[in-house]
Amino acid sequence: MAIAVLRFPGTNNEEDAIRALSLIEGADPYLVPSRKGLAGLEKADGIFIPGGFSYGDYLRAGAVASVETITEGVRDLAEDGLPVMGVCNGFQILAEMGLLPGALLPNESAHFICKWVYLKVSDRATLFTEGLEGAVIRLPIAHAEGNYYCSDEELEAINDENRIPFRYCNESGEINDIVNPNGSVHNVAGVLSQKGNVLGLMPHPERASRQILGSSDGLLIIENFVRATKC
């Protein structure tokens, strides 16, 4: 399946993403520089927006990339049901586009945080968490603006709609303030679009795709994403 891996000026995780995607049978990831515009998405069965610092994080992380021509193409394809996955800055771009609810604010500590975290996977089924329901997984984070925020009403709604597949937790799966790395409401680490085909995730599954990297938990999420592109 053809997976477009987008690269905006300042994106720097595209190689990691392509390597991780290449590990999955049937996945055919290819790099799409954002300047290619809509043409870059023509043959895509799925879209992966990797992390980095698109446009230097000027204005707000993801804001400038969110109004590019290619991003409009992503919106149309996502609305048609194409699987889209945004990691870190990719999540920030999807949130700025309004494809995902909420906003990613500066970390509560005001520091850039780079460390391994545990995530509790929702026990309700989603496209991206098949086989992981209720599990505790380990992925790295690396961000300065990963503090997920949305209004109380929105949080209640997305929680009810099973759109919070990943939350920060401790090793045994307990969700509390101590293990919340960045101040996110409700310890949210990832959210889904209304249709469930768009995932935004602050932690990096592509950096946890082989044991030698410290964990291969992330590969399971990427596998689910690739499987979804075949549907």
């Binding site: 400038v64 909420g102 925020y149």
Partner: peptide
Amino acid sequence: VKLLSNPIS
């Protein structure tokens, strides 16, 4: 609304 501010926050 489109770019300069994020109306959510």
